[in-house]
Amino acid sequence: MQLFYTPDIEPTHPQYFLSEEESKHAIRVLRLETGSEVQLIDGKGGFYTAVIHDAHPKRTILNITSVTEGFNKRSHHLHIAVAPTKNIERLEWFLEKATEIGIDEVSLIISQRSERKEAKVDRLSKIITAAIKQSIKAYHPVLNEPVKLSELLSRPFDGQKFMAHCEPGKKLSLRNELILQSRYLILIGPEGDFTPTEIETALQNGFKPITLGESRLRTETAALEACFEVNFLNRI
Rank of each mutant, 00 (worst) to 15 (best):
L3D: 07
T6H: 02
P7H: 05
P7A: 10
I9Y: 07
I9L: 10
T12V: 11
P14Q: 12
K24Q: 14
H25Y: 15
A26W: 09
T34V: 13
G35T: 04
E37F: 10
G43Q: 03
K44E: 09
K44P: 08
G45C: 01
Y48D: 01
Y48K: 01
T49I: 10
T49Y: 11
A50S: 00
I61Y: 08
L62Y: 08
L62H: 02
N63A: 09
N63H: 14
I64N: 03
G70T: 02
F71I: 04
K73L: 08
K73P: 08
R74V: 08
H77Q: 12
H79I: 02
A81W: 03
P84Y: 04
K86H: 12
K86G: 09
I88D: 14
E89S: 15
E89P: 05
W93I: 04
F94A: 02
L95P: 10
E96C: 12
I101Q: 07
G102V: 08
G102H: 07
I103E: 13
V106F: 14
R113P: 05
V121T: 03
L124H: 00
S125E: 13
K126Q: 15
I127H: 14
T129E: 12
T129F: 06
T129G: 09
A131K: 07
A131P: 09
S135D: 02
K137P: 08
H140D: 09
V142C: 09
N144E: 12
E145D: 00
V147Y: 12
K148C: 11
E151H: 15
L152G: 06
D158K: 12
G159Q: 09
Q160K: 07
Q160E: 15
F162A: 06
A164T: 03
L172P: 09
R175A: 14
N176E: 15
L178C: 11
I179N: 12
L180Y: 13
Q181F: 13
S182T: 08
S182Q: 10
I186C: 11
I188A: 04
I188T: 12
E191F: 07
P196L: 08
P196T: 03
T197Q: 15
I199C: 00
I199W: 00
T201Y: 04
P209H: 03
T219W: 01
E220F: 08
E220I: 04
T221A: 05
N234T: 06
